[in-house]
Amino acid sequence: MKNWLILLAGTGVLALLPLLGDNYLMRLATMVAMYVILAQSWNFIGGLAGYPSFATAGFFGLGAYTSAVLQGMGVPLFASWGAGGLAAVIFSALVGGAILHLRGHYFAIASLVTVEVLREIVNTTPDITGGGMGLNLPIMRMTVAEHATFFFYSMLAVAFACMACAIVVHKSKLGFALRCIQQNEDAANILGVNAYLYKTIGFGFSAVFAGIAGAIYASWVHYIEPPDVFDVLISVKPLVMVLLGGLGTIFGPVIGAFILLTFEEFVWRTFLTVHAAALGVIIVALVLFLPNGVLSLTREKLGLRRRAAGEKR
């Protein structure tokens, strides 16, 4: 219940942002929402089940290209976004079936390769995807403010859905099963948890929202090329965000998304050419000093209190 209240309140406050009328702030907010989606998506498979997936960029790019190609064929906007998410889920089920029996580093590498494969497929089918020349999306004739507001609300709505889904999953049998898998997959199997099925479902959850986010992103920027939407950074950033916020938690990914974007923006403004190095140093420092994420600060306090309470008894 508390989680729902936090989610509703947070979304409600963010939804007021267009009142400020600052389009660049709206762009940043849209990116935060997109980062939240990507981080929370990764959290389903990486945080809960403990499978270090690098396939996020694959889902993102697949969603982007699916919706872009469909829109080029005259499919309406929202239907094409849905199709982007659907394509990502179908792809995740097919690939998940093949690579989810791998564990640890092996799974990480296999998932990374799926991104490369998708990128190469797009590169080598120029008749459909434009190949290396990229793909244009239909331009929307609306004012600057309408454009910014529309994409902000779209991304926020998906982020909300993704968060709601996370809250439900964390409390459900699926969430329990995924946590069992993370702790000891063999034991979980012996106890009757169908690990293979649950992992695949978890992988599917990590795909659907990322795919929709990719689709919205494509419409937002009007032009996509393979190196942009299949960028390996799109796979790495969610991981960093979840680690920053707190692994396997509901609001950790949100906090991580805010922190990462804030730091990116801050560092990029302050250091004209050494921003990449500066950002790297900050991330390393954060991971060193807060290995369990920012949320661990509150959890530590709670833990102390509980222990104190136990001693009294």
């Binding site: 600052d22 389009n23 660049y24 762009r27 990116m31 920027v221 090329e225 190196p227 942009d228 960028d231 950074l233 990029w268 004209l272 050419t273 921003h275 990449a276």
Partner: peptide, 18 residues
């Protein structure tokens, strides 16, 4: 600087204008 990253170039353009 947009670090040779196209999406960042788009973001930069908006930042410069707004």
């Amino acid at each position: 600087d947009y670090a040779s990253n196209t999406p960042r170039a788009v973001q930069t353009a908006e930042r410069l204008i707004t």
